[in-house]
Simulated assay, not measured.
Amino acid sequence: MHNKNRIAVSNTVTLTPISINDREKLFSLMTRIYLPEYSHLWFDAGNWYMNKIYSSVNLERDLATPNSSYYFVDYQSETIGILKLVENVPLVGFKDQKSAKLDRIYLDPTFHSKGIGKTLIHWTENRVASSGYTILWLEAIDTQEKALAFYEKMDYKICGTFKLEYELIHPTLRGMSRMYKTI
């Protein structure tokens, strides 16, 4: 099926908008991508989080969020991740600047080190800059050293920290870093 709403990010990377009818595909994909990388954070291996974040109710809310874009990431026509961008979200400490939040970006670990993440970050930065935003920001788990190193390599700087309040996350693994880049 050819999706005319598909966005070509590069010769090999495309984005396909997620719809409410994609919930099962999204849940299956994130089970394959999220759990191997993040199950160690959770007392229940991430089951509660998966059922909460990728439920029909939450997907409806995500899709109804104003200024939000939610995509499947395809690499050479294989779905390998997700990207969610929310525009017009102020960053704490930068309230006078027009900001957008990279709310979710997850890629299948078997596709890491192929430049896909870098390509997606550049596309996102260009998209929000062309809409007049001056800050792109995100949040990352502070124990995910590879993710933090990747964002730092992409010139993102830590501007704050906080703890996740989810009871099912191991208390020592709740730390989050808020990172931003002026674009």
Rank of each mutant, 00 (worst) to 15 (best):
T16C: 11
I53A: 14
R32G: 01
F43R: 15
T16Q: 13
D22M: 11
I53K: 10
S55W: 03
E24T: 03
S56L: 14
I7D: 02
E24Q: 09
T12I: 04
L41D: 00
S56W: 06
E37V: 14
E37D: 10
E24S: 07
W48E: 09
Y49N: 01
D44T: 00
I53T: 14
K25M: 13
I53P: 03
E37G: 11
M50F: 05
N21F: 14
V9Q: 09
S10Y: 04
H40W: 09
F27P: 00
W48Q: 10
S56Q: 12
N47R: 14
M30D: 04
A8F: 06
P17Y: 11
F27K: 01
T12R: 08
I53Y: 06
I18P: 00
W42K: 11
A8I: 00
F27Q: 03
S56P: 10
M50P: 05
G46W: 15
T31K: 14
S10I: 03
R32C: 06
Y54C: 08
R32H: 08
T14G: 05
V57G: 02
Y34H: 13
S55Y: 02
T14H: 12
T31Y: 10
I20D: 02
R32N: 07
N21T: 11
M50Q: 08
S19A: 12
I7V: 15
T31M: 08
H40Y: 15
M30V: 06
E37I: 13
T31P: 05
A8V: 00
W42H: 13
E24W: 03
I7W: 10
N21I: 09
K52L: 07
A45K: 15
S39M: 08
W48P: 00
T16E: 12
S28W: 13
N51W: 07
D22C: 11
G46H: 14
N51K: 15
M50I: 11
I33N: 07
Y34A: 07
S39E: 09
R32V: 03
L26F: 04
Y38K: 14
T16H: 10
L15S: 05
I53G: 00
A8E: 04
T14Y: 10
W48M: 07
D44F: 03
P17R: 12
P36R: 13
L26S: 04
